[in-house]
């Protein structure tokens, strides 16, 4: 390992302002996509629950 300290690591040899936004945006997009899909799946399952419940009430 070449980094002497955490600050040195974060500075990325002076390129921290370019390296971290690149990795940050990538991480954010990937996490965001997974969260959106989980919510979408939960929402459709909830809708199916509701329609099933209304069918039971109607019958």
């Amino acid at each position: 390992m070449q980094w002497g300290s955490l600050n040195e690591f974060l500075a990325m040899g002076g390129y921290g302002a370019y390296v971290w936004p690149s990795f940050g945006a990538t991480a954010l997009c990937m996490i965001w996509e997974v969260l959106l899909l989980r919510r979408r799946h939960a929402a459709i399952r909830a809708a199916l629950h509701q329609s099933a419940a209304s069918v039971e009430v109607a019958s």
Binding site: V34, R40, H41, I44, R45, H49, S51, V55
Partner: peptide
């Protein structure tokens, strides 16, 4: 992984009228 997660959402959304999707809830 993400494409499979999304295709499961699409399947449920499209097949919501089908009886198996009702069971799958």
């Amino acid at each position: 992984a993400v494409a499979l997660m999304r295709v499961r959402c699409i399947i449920l959304e499209r097949e919501r009228q089908a009886s198996w999707a009702q069971i799958e809830r």
